[in-house]
Design a protein around this nucleic acid. Structure first.
Lengths: 122, 122
DNA sequence: CCGTATCCCTGTAGATACTG
DNA sequence: CAGTATCTACAGGGATACGG
């Protein structure tokens, strides 16, 4: 009696994935996405707020990642002023909010790792 | 009364991270790591088993990712034969096993996404 | 069976400077 | 304030062929 592994591929946004984990990582993987999302869990944030919170990200990268997250329907971008200085706020969509338990789960595990082997600087 | 955001950086493996989420993603991020780990949750697997399960990965990439996971202490590699054909098995370490709830959380969320917007092929 | 060796391409990301 | 514009660098990952 052999276990049969059926190879169902899933198409999402015109890309093929071999399992649901792949799809999830496509949306929240990469170096910065999940970090940005974590900070948006407790409410909307302005561009500069995020920039200061994620101290080691560059402006360019933050901008690109925010666009990606918006494109994937995880966050919304709202502009509140027409003339400079601009006020732009980013906020989780209802879809993005369904990620909250996943993200905190990741963060908590990261905390365990940090407590065991990490070293706090400054 | 202002909320103060202290900027503590965490050093892990000689790299700096701005939050615990970053550390977690350093270990399980990327396109394949979490997928490999998910398949190892229900027991050790041989190289070729993993290769067949993750149908869209290449041999080279699988090999590289397994080395990374081993280096990070998430899996162990055991060789059971001395002459070809080799038998090599990969298994989660106790540390790797602490990831199980996180990984299933990611996979379940991916499943929700797939059910809503994904399309099953074949 | 379990990988390595090459080669190459692309995406991610950093540094820096500039703008409406 | 909230980004763009360039330019650069490197790691992740794919294709293919080969090796103990």
């Amino acid at each position: 009696m052999e276990i049969e592994h059926k190879k169902r591929l899933i198409k999402y946004n015109d890309k093929l994935f071999s399992c649901t984990t792949s799809i999830a990582m496509e949306l929240i993987g990469g170096k910065w996405k999940s970090v940005i999302l974590i900070y948006l869990i407790d409410g909307k944030k302005r561009y500069n707020e995020l920039y200061k919170l994620i101290s080691t990200i560059t402006e360019r990268t933050l901008s690109l990642q925010l666009k990606q997250l918006e494109k994937d329907g995880l966050i919304t971008r709202k502009v509140y002023t027409k003339k400079p200085p601009l006020k732009v706020e980013y906020e989780l969509t209802p879809f993005g909010k369904t990620l909250a338990p996943v993200l905190t789960s990741i963060a908590n595990w990261g905390k365990i790792v940090a407590d065991k082997k990490g070293e706090i600087i400054e």
